[in-house]
């Protein structure tokens, strides 16, 4: 996996105020961290959506992201479609794939022990990775998707105050994540189907009694989850390029989901951003190597100190 590009350091002549430079350096790192954290947030969001509804932890989430990125690569680079059209098509395709995955692979094992279901998702991940490697035109190389966003920095504050820039790529990730979260929030809160999805994840049996087609609703949730993963993959592509193993980033989204409180959607987003920031800061200020383990150190710490996470819900049933 290619190294994730973190915040850009500004090689500036030591100005009159040393601490100001340190502060701007820190802020610059945070901006980079937020951007990569948004990717974690989107992948974690996928984890949480599926977990909340079906109590399945989908270890193939990262690989769904990889598939989404490769589909976008196919549409945009190989077929030469417009970027937005290609991205949209990839997201729609992944929605269908996620939906079918639930119908074909997970629904038949409904009612089996959790362990077997989790093993199946891990297996699906492996298959997806190998299949992507075998596809004509895809293969095990590293590819780039041409995007309309430049990696050139844009000033956030006037030059007289200091150097603080954000690249268009980073900005696109942050804005897209915000839009996705807002869209999902509105969908779950205000649409009939969205509320029915919440209902099915809160009480499956009662949802059946209400006439909600719970199985179909679960497939829809898998679809949404895969679509969000595809979006994450497409947004990540300019930063890390795409290859068949990019799905391992899903493993970093896992601490993000736990930090936010597994099962909380806002938690997943906040957790993702925090993990992104911590990772970037650790990569800069701590000795080499800490960047890769920082997320897991946070995971361990959270499990010890606050196992329910930041936004975890602890409620008992009233009898």
């Amino acid at each position: 996996m290619s190294e994730i590009q973190c915040g850009k350091k500004n090689k500036q002549e030591p100005s009159d105020n040393y601490w100001e430079a340190v502060l701007f350096e820190f802020l610059q790192l945070v901006i980079g961290g937020v951007s990569i954290g948004c990717i974690y947030a989107l992948v974690a969001l996928g984890f949480v959506l599926i977990y909340k509804a079906t109590e399945v932890v989908n270890f193939a989430q990262g690989d769904l992201m990889m598939l989404g990125a490769f589909l976008a690569f196919t549409f945009i680079t190989i077929l030469g479609w417009n970027y937005w059209l290609g991205a949209l098509a990839a997201i729609v395709c992944m929605f269908v794939i996620g939906n079918l995955m639930d119908r074909a692979i997970l629904r038949p094992v409904l009612g089996q022990p959790q362990f077997s279901i989790i093993m199946i998702t891990i297996g699906v991940g492996y298959i997806a990775r190998s299949a992507a490697g075998m596809m004509p035109g895809w293969g095990n190389e590293t590819y780039a998707i041409s995007t309309p966003f430049s990696s050139q920095g844009m000033r956030l504050i006037p030059e007289s105050m200091g150097q603080l820039v954000v690249s268009q790529t980073d900005l696109s990730v942050i804005v897209a994540t915000l839009l996705f979260c807002a869209g999902l929030f509105a969908f779950f809160k205000y649409t009939r189907l969205g509320v029915a999805m919440q209902a099915s994840s809160q009480n499956q049996l009662a949802s059946y009694y209400m006439g909600i087609p719970v199985k179909a609703v679960f497939s829809m949730i898998w679809g949404i989850s895969a679509a969000v993963a595809a979006a994450a993959g497409i947004l990540l592509a300019p930063t890390t390029l795409i290859d068949t193993n990019m799905g391992f980033i899903g493993l970093k989204a896992f601490p993000a989901a736990v930090l936010g409180g597994f099962g909380s959607i806002p938690g997943a987003v906040v957790g993702g951003v925090i993990i992104g920031i911590i990772e970037t800061l650790a990569g800069f200020y701590l000795p080499p190597g800490f960047k890769n383990v920082a997320a897991y150190l946070v995971l361990l710490l959270v499990l010890v100190v606050r196992p329910q996470g930041l936004f975890g819900e602890k409620t008992g049933k009233r009898v």
């Binding site: 509320v195 209902a199 809160q202 009480n203 949802s207 009694y209 409620t315 049933k317 009898v319």
Partner: peptide, 23 residues
């Protein structure tokens, strides 16, 4: 109307009613 009520705990009362009218 199931035993033990089985309402949707995190949905508002109104949304619970709306779920009743889902069909």
């Amino acid at each position: 109307v199931p035993e033990g009520r089985e309402v949707f705990p995190f949905l508002s009362v109104y949304d619970n009613l709306m779920m009743g009218a889902y069909t």
